[in-house]
Amino acid sequence: MDLPSVLIPAYKPDDKMLKLIEDLLELGFSRIMVVNDGSGSDYDACFARAETLGCRIVRHAVNMGKGRALKTGLNEAMLCGFSEPGVITADADGQHLPGDIRRVAQAMAENPNALVLGVRRFTGNVPLRNRMGNGITRGVFALVNGNGVMDTQTGLRGLPGKHLPLMLALKGERYEYEMNMLLEARPNDVQMVQVPIDTIYIEGNKSSHYHPFIDSVRIYSLILRYILSSIMAGVADYGVFALVHTRFPDPLIVSVVSARVISSLVNFLINRNIVFRQKGTMAHAAGRYYALVLFVMLASYGLIWTLSVPLGLNVYLSKVITDIFLSIFSFVIQREFVYSSSSRIKVFKNHKAEAGTAGR
């Protein structure tokens, strides 16, 4: 099997990175690239040793963040012939075992066009900030994206050569870059394959440069943009409904239809171009979308009438309740049907992951 290259972004590494490199060489990984992300002169000896072992060293003059270090490495891989059949990214802190990196390579060979993720199970002795951070992010990601990723923060990823130009074009300079990679997989029709790996935290993960608050704010700001863009269409819908219903209270269907016609156009354009980032033809999506609009319009009328007439609720309150329910329903249908892609996530079951800790 032609093994992929290995890319290690490193900021102030220690002997754990050198041990990983030695083990990878023993497993047959002959193309290893290390990006020195502005670690400073105190770490020159560590990088010099890596270079002596045969690694290709790329340097940042100052610390620029993990996302930038990954993109620098990917760019260099494309320029120097390290891009085929792909590139595996691995962390420098010893959390990724050489055997698990080898399993990611195997999954890449069996799924040559897929983004392969080495995912931890987060069981056993896992630091609280890692367990909670990944759990929350995983839940929000599944809600927004529709695909369940077991470990959204994993740094062990197999990137096929054909998708490297896409990876280079993604935004993000720090840890949000890795979230962008996951968010952009579905709209770009990139399948994801998950490989369970061992959960390893060395000395309580104190060597990690991930800052839970600062970097999580950057990550969640990306997800919130997806949610807030959908709310804009709801605001337009409610505004048109209120305006029309104030002037023409009867029949109710006039207000509902007017609101849906205007807001549907806003909703379609925002969701197609910003939320779901569909790459197909507009006509294909528009046909499905307006079939959904017709259904939602009739359902909206039926629910508002039921709540406001037989049940006696205020018509505006009825409108809010109806729209909350239908917005969730509509989001799921748009994600899975209107703007759906052929990309799906599957789990590579060649390895049973276990939790563990290690020390030096």
Rank of each mutant, 00 (worst) to 15 (best):
F248N: 13
L269S: 11
P249A: 05
G280A: 02
V235W: 02
S229Y: 01
S263Y: 12
S264I: 05
A291K: 05
R272Y: 14
A285N: 03
D250A: 02
S258T: 13
F248Q: 11
V266M: 08
L252F: 04
Y289E: 01
Y290S: 01
I262C: 08
P249W: 00
R288Y: 02
A259H: 14
I223C: 03
R277E: 14
D250T: 09
V240L: 08
N273H: 03
T246R: 15
I262R: 10
M282I: 13
P249N: 04
V256S: 01
G234Y: 04
P251W: 03
L252A: 03
I270P: 09
P249L: 02
S255D: 13
S255C: 10
G239R: 09
D237G: 06
G280Y: 03
R260D: 02
G280T: 00
L252Y: 02
N273I: 02
F248C: 06
A286S: 05
Q278L: 03
I262L: 15
L224W: 04
R272T: 14
M282C: 08
K279V: 00
V244M: 11
A233Q: 05
I253V: 14
R288H: 08
S221I: 09
V244Q: 07
T246H: 15
L224F: 04
R277C: 05
Q278T: 07
V266A: 10
Y290P: 05
I253D: 12
S258M: 14
S255L: 11
R247I: 11
H284Y: 07
I223K: 09
V257K: 01
V256E: 10
Y289M: 01
R277L: 10
T281Y: 00
R247T: 13
R272A: 13
H284S: 12
I227A: 02
P251K: 01
A242H: 10
I262T: 14
L222P: 03
Y238M: 08
V257Q: 11
S230Q: 01
R277F: 00
I253K: 09
D250G: 07
V261L: 13
M232H: 07
R260V: 08
S258W: 09
A286R: 05
M232G: 04
L252Q: 03
V240Q: 13
F241T: 10
V275R: 00
I231H: 00
H245N: 12
A283G: 04
I253L: 03
V244H: 08
